[in-house]
Computed example of a mutant assay.
Amino acid sequence: MPTRPEDVMRLLTDARPGRLDPDGRPDAANYTTQSIPRRRSVPRRLILAAALPAVAAATAAAVVLTAGGTDPAPAPSGLGGAPGGSGAAAAPGSARELLLVAAAQTDASATATSGRYWVRVQEHGERKEVGRYGIASRLLIERWLATAAGDPNVEVYQDLGAAPVTAADEAAWKADGSPQQWTETGPKGTTPIVRTTAAGPRQVRAVRGSLPMMIAGLQVTAADLAGLPSEPGALKSWLTARLPQHADGDLFYAGRDLVAELPVSAAVRAAAYRMLADLSGVDFLGVVQDRQGRSGLAVAFTRRGDGGWGQQRLIVDPGTGRALAQESWFLGSAATPTALGTLMSWTVHVRAGFTDDAAPTA
């Protein structure tokens, strides 16, 4: 686990955002790790089938924000019976129905539109193949984006510790002696990263300057976000004119970023949901749980890349219209995708919204 600030910042800077995850499985030959079992004196060489964490966007500095933000994170509404917890309304039965319900809930939300900071708290994770099982490499990233030029941006990050990803991974991990530590080696000239099951220290960094923000790989400014159209057709046209590629898959990533990642107004988020509802190739997955165990309904876009079939998922609480999580899955390299896939990386949206609180300093 990296403990020096420069090691952690290198991790964050070099990481690919989840929205740019490859459609296929990364090359297993790129990285190796050494397992240090709890009850063994001789370490073993193990293989990692994933690259450096695709868990965070690059670090950056202050920006003046004028757009609205997403709601502070309430507890997601229950999905027993009808999603949204009403018990009376019929649960959405298709991707289009879910996305239109989410848009209506977003329209109706009472969202704060100003504050000293816009705060976003996320948990990022990535699966690492370690021998016969996978471990989850997890980071908590908290961003305080200043709305006035006199305040710095603040980023807080914490390594949450590694753990087996699934129940099957946990069983294999226990059979392997329950190792508590692994060493990941990267490209020549980089410092090896030691990952352990223990959480690392909470680290705070204040930065000044401009902060890059991305929509489906397109860098945008706070002024761009403030001027986004709030009508779905106009929003699609705005994105189509700017994205290098504007197939439905790229528009799905763009819509997902707008509803889940960026400080845009509720009207723009609702428009993004409605744009997603009109895209072809968006599938309905029904009730799922995110990595924190919260229930929601999921939609997905699947396409084939050089390495195989990849699927991007968006998990939504239909009772509030809030995006709970986004996930990247590998569905195999055969001619057709498998029904069951492997979760490769994820972002859990813990909370986001405006606040007048002072940013943390330590």
Rank of each mutant, 00 (worst) to 15 (best):
Y253R: 13
E142R: 06
E170C: 06
P5W: 03
S178F: 07
S210G: 10
G281T: 07
R304M: 11
S86F: 14
L65K: 09
A54Q: 08
G24Q: 05
W238P: 02
T111L: 08
E142G: 09
T336V: 08
R303G: 08
V287K: 03
A339F: 01
E184G: 05
G189D: 13
G200V: 01
A146L: 06
D250W: 01
V207W: 09
S237L: 13
L285K: 02
D357C: 13
R132I: 04
R10Y: 15
I315P: 02
T185P: 01
A91H: 10
V220H: 13
M275W: 09
D21P: 00
P337R: 02
A266E: 02
Q245G: 04
E97Y: 04
A15W: 12
A241R: 11
P360V: 08
R16P: 01
A102Q: 05
A267E: 15
N153E: 14
G69D: 09
V299E: 03
L211V: 15
Q245P: 02
V259P: 07
G308S: 05
I315T: 10
I193G: 03
Q203A: 15
R116H: 04
G87Q: 09
A54E: 08
L145T: 13
L160V: 14
V220Y: 14
G255Y: 02
G217K: 05
R96E: 13
Q181L: 12
G321R: 06
G255W: 01
A352G: 03
Y253W: 15
L79M: 15
R138K: 14
D357I: 00
A67K: 02
A335M: 05
S109M: 03
L262F: 07
L343V: 13
L160G: 05
Q219F: 11
A89K: 11
T190H: 04
A29H: 04
F301K: 05
G85L: 04
G296W: 05
R19H: 05
R116S: 14
A58V: 08
A29W: 12
A172M: 01
W144M: 13
T338G: 09
L225E: 07
Q105L: 12
A167I: 13
R322A: 01
D248G: 10
G161C: 05
Q311L: 00
R19M: 02
G200F: 06
V348C: 06
T240W: 08
D176G: 03
A359I: 07
Q203P: 02
A57E: 15
P5L: 10
V55E: 09
D278A: 13
D357W: 12
S86G: 13
L324R: 03
L262K: 13
R274I: 00
L46I: 11
G233V: 00
T221Q: 06
M213R: 00
A108M: 08
E170D: 11
V268F: 08
Y31I: 04
V121F: 05
G249W: 05
P179F: 03
A88W: 09
D176W: 08
A172G: 07
I215G: 00
